[in-house]
Design a protein around this nucleic acid. Structure first.
Length: 552
RNA sequence: CCGCCCGUAGCUCAGUGGAUCAGAGCGACUGACUUCGGAUCAGUAGGUCGGGGGUUCGAAUCCCUCCGGGCGGGCCA
């Protein structure tokens, strides 16, 4: 629909009915919205009012011209001409109404190709790397990691819906100081010594000790051996396997796991720094090696190698950028907690300094979840062993409810997560409302089959009743919802739409008897419509990674 | 002190490059079919969109300022 309005506008300009825009005027975006009031039609656009100022024309005059152009386009003999009427409404709105035939065609199309319903035209077939979660393997994932996992996976799904090729990547450090620290904690418990002052105190440390193989412990504790390093490396590997299992429970699978140590071992960091040096963005001061980040607007330069020769975390980031691009990705997306926003600029700056397009390196920051219980903030600390694990959360609220919870909220909205409230609300989660509608339709289909009724293969010319038309309109809206979600890289619109469609269906169910042996023809049409609704709900849920049950 | 994010109904949150945006769910209250799934449906109450100022024909939305909350400003990760 947006395209149709856009076409009418450009054609009007081409035919001289409307002036072109001056070069120095920003071209207004064509906005098409769904009016809340059905009296305003199926679509409405305020384009004429937006053009009033640059054109120095009355909005109504522009609207009249656009309206005529739109109507002419609709009557041209093209197979898919969905517009029935176009009205001009003061102060300059265009209210567009769809032809029933277009709704019927949409429904018939769903029945013919259920899997393809809601698939949008690719908005660019780029190869995208999405890195998320990336928690270091010093302990199990806790509920603080949940948001990043869901936000990242949902973004990937939306990108895939838009035709992009997505690689899900997890980055971790299995050789740093915190890993040694974990190793030290495990080793201490194994010896029967007290935990180090800043050691890890969670119950899972004891589990690690119990699982520590004897032969590994013998070689690790031998004279002169790097006990903490060896034990830590082993523990990190084991913890990482647990993390992978937890993520699989969430329905999140990663394509690539990258270790920070590997980036150093394979020389990625060194080569990246050399590249910066070649471009003249590296200098030495106070014994440390610096990146001239200020050349790109940063407020200070950043250390790459400390004066003791050790690389910083930032050094690995730089190497990682080149390593990722070397694999042929067009875009790199990082899903980070908002507490990382300070590092956004320097990484993008370094990418630009190395000759990459800084716009190809994007960071999506999600707000941190604040955990409270009875109004008191609960701290999440792996080291102190005070945390609720992701596995425990899932056992309480369920994967579908948790997914819906995050899919229906913007990534940047701050969330107070009350643990007791979450358990309580999991039973009232709207996801069940949507799933119920799906299961109800499945049940209706079973019932119909028992009565010897089958859905019609098409509904052309048959959507005459008000309940039918209302449901068909709701169903037909789905592709645009997906399009908007893809364009905005957000999923809230999909959850809102699915809820709305479920509501519309329940109303239809109330007003229209679907299974009626006395009227098989009408039943066939209504079954077809119900079937199309079921497909739409299932596809919407699938896009979010949520199950669509046949019964509940 | 500086920078970024946030403040919308009792609660949890949508809407945020203007108009046809004051919304949803939950909670509260009043009702509904002896037939297709009541995890449903119909309805009621509830908000000066944190406060103030500005731009505009029009601001929850853009600008300024104040208040409140979160997070950053390491040769930490």
């Amino acid at each position: 629909m947006r395209d149709a309005v856009e076409r009418a506008w450009t054609r009007s300009i081409a035919e001289g009915a409307l002036p072109g825009l001056a070069d120095d005027v920003a071209r207004p975006a064509v906005e098409v919205e769904r009016p809340a009031d059905p009296a305003h039609g199926d679509f409405a656009t305020n384009l004429a009012m937006k053009l009033a100022r640059p054109y120095r024309m009355a909005p109504l005059a522009i609207a009249t011209q656009l309206s005529g152009q739109l109507a002419r386009e609709a009557t041209e003999a093209r197979p898919a001409t969905p517009i029935a009427t176009v009205e001009v409404a003061p102060p300059g709105f265009l209210n567009i109404r769809l032809a029933d035939a277009s709704l019927e065609a949409a429904v018939t199309g769903i029945l013919a190709d259920p899997a393809g319903w809601g698939r949008v035209a690719p908005m660019g077939s780029r190869s995208v790397n999405v890195e998320f979660v990336s928690a270091n393997p010093t302990g199990p994932l806790h509920i603080g990691n949940a948001r990043g996992a869901f936000v990242g996976d949902l973004l990937c799904r939306v990108l895939e819906a838009g035709g992009q090729r997505v690689t899900r990547e997890y980055y971790f450090n299995d050789s740093g100081g915190q890993i040694r620290n974990l190793g030290a904690s495990v080793a201490a418990l194994r010896r029967g010594d007290p935990l180090p002052e800043d050691g890890y105190k969670g119950d899972y440390v004891a589990d690690l000790v119990a699982a520590l193989p004897d032969d590994l412990w013998e070689s690790a504790s031998a004279r002169g051996a790097d006990t903490d390093g060896i034990v830590g490396h082993w523990a990190a590997g084991r913890v990482r396997e647990g993390i992978e299992r937890s993520l699989a429970e969430l329905g999140v699978r990663f394509d690539v796991w990258t270790s920070e140590a590997r980036l150093h071992d394979e020389g990625w960091v060194e080569r990246a720094v050399q590249r910066l040096r070649d471009h003249g963005y590296v200098y030495e001061q106070d014994g440390a090696i610096w990146f001239r980040s200020t050349d790109f607007g940063d407020d200070k330069d950043r250390v790459i190698y400390r004066s003791n020769g050790e690389p910083t975390y930032f050094a690995a980031d730089i190497g990682y950028v080149t390593e990722k691009f070397s694999r042929g990705f067009d875009d790199l997306i990082y899903i980070w907690g908002a507490d990382h926003h300070g590092t956004v600029a320097r990484v993008r700056n370094a990418a630009e300094a190395m000759g990459y397009d800084r716009n190809a390196v994007r960071m999506l920051l999600y707000s941190w979840v604040r955990f409270v219980r009875d109004g008191q903030e609960v701290s999440m600390s792996k080291r102190a062993g005070e945390f609720i694990t992701l596995d425990e959360l899932l056992a309480e609220v369920g994967v579908d409810a948790a997914r819906w919870f995050f899919a229906s909220r913007g990534a940047t909205s701050a969330i107070d997560f009350d643990i007791e409230l979450a358990k309580k609300q999991s039973n009232e989660n709207p996801v069940y409302y949507v799933q119920y509608a799906h299961a109800r339709i499945a049940s209706i289909m079973r019932k119909a089959a028992e009565s010897g009724l089958t859905p019609a293969s098409g509904v052309d010319g048959a959507l005459t009743g008000a309940p039918e038309a209302a449901l068909a309109r709701a169903v037909a809206r789905f592709p645009e919802v997906v399009e908007d979600a893809v364009a905005a890289e957000e999923t809230q619109g999909i959850t809102a739409y699915a809820t709305d469609l479920a509501t519309t269906f329940h109303g239809f169910y109330r007003d229209a008897r679907v299974v009626d042996a006395a009227d098989p023809d009408r039943s066939a049409v209504r079954l077809a419509l119900a079937s199309a609704t079921r497909v739409t709900l299932a596809n919407a849920l699938r896009l979010l990674g949520i199950s669509a049950p046949e019964s509940m």
